[in-house]
Design a protein around this nucleic acid. Structure first.
Lengths: 129, 129
DNA sequence: CGTTTATCCGCACAGACGTACGGATAAACG
DNA sequence: CGTTTATCCGTACGTCTGTGCGGATAAACG
């Protein structure tokens, strides 16, 4: 269990310790990535990028999804601080928070690049075993 | 359960249907985001950005993490096609797959933007209820 | 060969998450 | 007021996933 008493390459270990992500910073990233890790939330964000402001029911219609599920997804997005709700009577209209739109669009585009890399192979390596 | 018989704003509904993410495309995104949704995997990717190639034990040392956990994280990253393993004797050396490095770095930077938005508030809205 | 070492795997377990459903809230509408 | 409607919440349930541990594999080392 406790192999590896001393580093194989101490230089790189130090480099990572100096230039890598701290545990808390990585935690922050992971929490944000987890918000994007649900298809419905991704589709909602994309929908709000296209159509500035929408209510729950219209989103459910447009995405062909359950209204409860959309409501729950919007709650998560709101908790994450990515969307903003405007109350008008009994309706709730949602839109991306200021600054989130650009950042989300950028993330989506970068993920698209990544997905091209990720879909080349399913194992990522087969010249071993 | 089945409120909202007809759209409030049919135009936007149509716009989303035309310009939004398809269900399958969103699924692909979500799967990739889920890979980044673990702090250890994020730290490993960041480490490999800094130090091209590392073995499991050195990564565990540098990140102060359990070797089993690192091994498991690398397996997930390999399954996702993001890292590549080079076998040398009993050691396994990992590095980012070609093309993944740039894309990952870009995603990390965009996520940093997003995290600035996301950490302003915990509810994303308080002028309601 | 036998032992040590680096990594990996199978399994069981605990925690987080999305979904469904019943009910609550609260506004529109007469 | 009473009813309908749009959204939200609390709870329960099944699923997925990261972790820990024992053991397997396989190379180095004498």
């Amino acid at each position: 269990m406790s192999c590896h008493d001393h580093p194989v390459d101490p230089e790189r270990v130090e480099a990572v310790r100096a230039g890598g992500l701290t545990a808390t910073h990585a935690e922050q990233f992971a929490r944000l990535a987890r918000v994007l890790a649900d298809p419905l939330r991704g589709r909602i964000l994309a929908a709000l990028l296209v159509s500035d402001e929408m209510c729950v029911g219209d989103l459910a219609l447009a995405l062909d999804a359950n209204e409860d599920a959309v409501s729950y997804a919007l709650r998560r997005l709101r908790t994450a601080g990515l969307v903003h709700r405007r109350r008008d009577g009994r309706m709730g209209y949602y839109r991306l928070r200021d600054g989130a739109a650009r950042a989300i669009a950028a993330v989506v585009n970068r993920l698209r690049e990544l997905s091209e890399v990720g879909s080349e192979s399913s194992t990522g390596d087969r010249a071993d075993a």
